[in-house]
Every structure is written in structure tokens, then in C-alpha cells.
Design a binder for these strands. Sequence first.
DNA 1: AACAAAAATGAACAGTGTTCAATTTTTTTC
DNA 2: GAAAAAAATTGAACACTGTTCATTTTTGTT
Lengths: 198, 198
Amino acid sequence: MNKDNIQENLVNKGRELIKEKGAEFLTARKLSEASGYSVGTIYNQFGNMDNFILIQNYLTLDSLYARLSQMQASGTPYQRLNLYTREFINFVLENKNLWFLVHNFHLHNNNRRFSKIYLRRVVQITQLMENAFKALFPDIPLPERILSLQVLWLSLFSLSSFLTTDALDSFSKINKNSLCELLLNTYLAGIKVLEKTQ
Amino acid sequence: MNKDNIQENLVNKGRELIKEKGAEFLTARKLSEASGYSVGTIYNQFGNMDNFILIQNYLTLDSLYARLSQMQASGTPYQRLNLYTREFINFVLENKNLWFLVHNFHLHNNNRRFSKIYLRRVVQITQLMENAFKALFPDIPLPERILSLQVLWLSLFSLSSFLTTDALDSFSKINKNSLCELLLNTYLAGIKVLEKTQ
DNA sequence: AACAAAAATGAACAGTGTTCAATTTTTTTC
DNA sequence: GAAAAAAATTGAACACTGTTCATTTTTGTT
């Protein structure tokens, strides 16, 4: 087994563990036991566990990006943005444990969560929506439009953390699926207004 | 020293540590050393460290609630909602470490973060905005209005996690202060439209 | 086959949260 | 006030983290 295969095996095995048992279960020793590699090997490959978690989150975000990328560009721009959002929600609900880790990973070495290179991938997803967004709001200048889209996406992204647990269910009648969709459609309607009044 | 004083002393000392050194610094032994009480006493008082963190977050949310409560109800409803949001942002920026802990605390015993009793306090803050919200959108039926306000506030709340670090600064030109305000005003404009078309 | 270089290993270290028998303090009882 | 009982405090010890690095094993070269 060469180095690349080891990394691949460890990443895959770790991903299985997260999916099945949750992000909290993943530790160096348990990954060692489950993968067959020693703890030292894990550290030879990744340096530390933070990097391992970052890689897992990169993969999750890349997976989301790939899924949103291959969507058909059919319907009106408005419909397309709704489809993007619905597909995003589906992805989150289908990968609760992975998405939980994206929001709630605990870093030991790096100062704080959401390191720059990591958050960049989040913002990159706005590029996918940009075409539909441009078609929907042709009168808004590029800088403002990008800003507005980034605020929208970052809101949807951060709001989606509530989809990974059932804490919200007990005392708010907000439907999980409509939580993000309501934000999207209200926000889009708001831009339309502000676009004209400017 | 009676039991209540011990709890109070521990909570106050822990709060100091979080404010000064960050949430990551707070451990049972460091709190013990800083407060003068033994580790066992901490556990006699709080049961476990998760409860201690939960109490700290309760205090933070109560503090935010108190601050928003005592605001003067002047100006238009629209202006008042903007003032609430601005005051909220100020609070977050003035208490970055405490707010970081609200979003990023790491639970060991409880299953997952945002336990129900904890998240309830977050949603309770919507009650403060409800009056201004009602005045601004009198034609929306109560259930829908509450839902809409909850979505707005939960979005602002979750979005505010980006205010506690500088990760966003490097690759997006979004101003921290305008991040939440842009969301608010666009969302409010959107409700106004959807209110009429219904 | 003998040597050299590289890779894999897992005990050991420092740090977590947590427990609980032993100690200290406080209260009660006479 | 002294003795006994009850309550509260303590911190060493346990099981678990992430991490290191001398030792062992494997691989590659001559």
C-alpha cells in the first residue's frame, strides 16, 4: 500500500464512522482500530486530527458543490433558486452527521473554527447560484448583487445547522423544510423591491 | 460561604476566564485553580462541566434579553427593528468570547448542542420584536407572522456566529455590521410584498 | 545477502471530564 | 463545652482525549 492509498482508506473509513456513529465518535484510537492502521500512521498522514476533520469537511462541501453543479438549469431563475435551496436542504438532511461536523467541529490547534481556506469553499457555492441570481435581478450592479447573494447564502448555510438536530421541533412550529425556503423566498421578494427603489 | 455563594463565585470567575482568555481556556482544573475551589466542589455544584457551560450561555442570553428589553420604543416599527438588530450586533461584538461559546460549546454528556431548554431562550427573544413586527405587518395572521419572525430571528442569530471571528474578512467584502442589517432589511421588504400578494 | 532509507508502530506523556473514599467542616445533641 | 452525627469539601485516581518519538518493521538499493 502506498501513501495515497493509506490516506484514502483512512478518510473513507473515518467518513463511514461519522455517518454511522456521529461526529462525536471519531477519535484517533477508534479510527485506528476501525481502519487497522496504528495511531502513529494517522499522524504521519494528517499531522493532527484537526486536519483530518478539515479534510472531511472539504469533502462534504465538495460533495454538496458537485450535487448542486449537476442540476439541470431548467425553469425560471426564481424556480432554479428554489430548486437549489431544496436540493441543499435534501443534502443536509441526508447527511446530518457530516453536516453537523461541518458546523460543529472542535479544533484543538488552530485558533478557531471556520478557518479561512475552509470558509472559502462555503462562499464558493454562491458562484453556482450567481447565474440564476443575475437573471432574476438584472438591474442590480455586480458588487451589490454579489454581496446580496453572499448574505443570502451565508444565512441559509448558518441556518441549516438547525436541520441536523431536532431541538427546534419541540417549541416552534416551523417546518424544517420550509425554514430555509421561507427565508429564501422572502429575501428574494425583498431584493426585488429594493432593486426598484434604488 | 454557603452553597449559593460558591455557585455565584464559580460562575463569576468562570465568566471572567471566558471573557479574558476565550471559551477554549475554560476547564475544570483551571477554573478550580483560578477560583480557589477544588475540582470536586465544582462537580458538587454543577454536576458536570456541560451544565456549567449551559449556565454561562443562559446568562449570556439573559443578558442579551435584558439589554434589548430596556431599549426605548421610539421611532417607527421599521426603525425599532433596525435598532434591535444593531443593538444585537453591538452586544455580540462586545461579547465575542461569550457569544462564541453560545454557538460553539462542545457537549460531552448531552447528546448534541442546542438542547431544548437552551434553544428556547433564543426563540424567546422574538417576543421582544413581536410588537414592532405586528405594527409593521398588521395584515398577516398571527401564526404566519410569528413563523416569519422566528425565521428572521433564527437567521440573524445563526448568522451572527460569523461575527465572532475574522474568517470572513479575508475573501468577502461583506462588512460585519451590515451583514445582519442587510439580511434584516431585505427580509422585511420581502414580507411587505408577500403580505400584499396573499 | 547485506546494507541503507523509509515507513509503520504503539507505549508513554500531558491534558481533558469525572468519580468517590477519605478528610474536613458544620451542625446537632447531650 | 464536649462528643456524636451529618454535611460539605477535597484531590488522588480512572478512563478517555490528542500527540510524540524511540523502536521495530518494511521497503528499496547495491
